[in-house]
């Protein structure tokens, strides 16, 4: 598969993006851990869609955006990105922090996107439990907390098994710093998002891991109640990194939904 790396300038920020595949555009927004690009799930999806996987401003190889203050800012930015990249009503898929961003984008401009996929999305405050304070934990602890069982993850060694280089560590630090900039307080949620979600009548698929220890599955249930056109699928024996932990099941679900 031909996967290209591009840099797209949006509002003065150089946005790094991986893109590849064929078919209708599918915009994929990564989580706080950074852009892992075309992992197995997205390679499968790229067989049917033109996948766009940009790196958020302030993360990885994208330019700085110290002026951004919130996920709402990032959402407005990506609505602009859609215009500049010429994606015209793409399907929108977001994981975790990227899922929150996708939900904000849908609430701001439901007509700007086609179908919506939220995977273990942040953005809503759970009622019965709490979102794990990821900034309070060491990267090593998070690696464990993020997933249900590394042994079941086909790409574990490739993604997490190598000793990080100094450059990797610098990027990880940069990703954490930008995540903190965007999501420190209120932590990982927007108290008014729930007021706007009922506006989003686009078909929406919500996917969660039953064993998610970062964002509890009750947040998935709340999204399901607030988004009128949504369904929720909970994958068993799956933690927070749904597309990485169960790439084949995830890709199948998304493919079925977008068809």
């Amino acid at each position: 598969m031909d996967i290209r790396e591009e840099t797209i300038s949006v509002g003065g920020v150089a946005v790094h993006a991986w893109t590849g595949g064929q078919g209708a555009p599918l915009l994929v927004l990564h989580g706080a851990g950074g852009n892992r690009g075309f992992t197995r799930a997205f390679r499968a999806l790229a067989e049917h869609y033109t996948v766009w996987a940009p790196t958020h401003p302030g993360f990885g190889a994208s330019g700085d955006a110290e002026w951004m203050q919130s996920i709402a800012d990032l959402a407005r930015f990506y609505l602009w990105f859609i215009d500049v990249a010429g994606l015209r009503r793409p399907h929108l898929l977001g994981q975790s922090l990227g899922g929150w961003t996708a939900a904000e984008m849908a609430a701001m401009g439901p007509g700007s996107i086609d179908k919506l996929v939220l995977s273990a999305a942040a953005g809503l405050k759970p009622e019965k439990s709490e979102i794990l304070d990821v900034f309070f934990h060491t990267p090593a602890e998070l690696r464990t907390l993020n997933v249900h069982d590394p042994k079941t993850i086909p790409e574990w060694d490739e993604l997490f098994g190598k000793v990080p280089t100094p450059a990797d560590l610098e990027i990880a630090e940069r990703n954490r710093e930008m995540s903190a900039r965007l999501a420190w307080k209120p932590y990982m949620h927007n108290p008014v998002l729930e007021r706007f979600l009922p506006r989003v009548t686009n078909p929406a698929l919500i996917v969660w891991g039953r064993e998610d220890r970062i964002i509890p599955v009750e947040c998935g249930e709340r999204y399901r109640k607030l988004l009128p056109g949504s369904t929720l699928t909970v994958l068993e024996k799956c933690g927070h990194l749904v597309p990485i932990e169960q790439p084949d099941a995830f890709a199948r679900l998304v493919r079925e939904f977008l068809k």
């Binding site: 309070f136 060491t138 710093e177 995540s179 903190a180 900039r181």
Partner: peptide, 8 residues
């Protein structure tokens, strides 16, 4: 270290 020197 995250407690004494949080990110950023």
């Amino acid at each position: 270290v995250e407690w004494f020197q949080p990110v950023g």
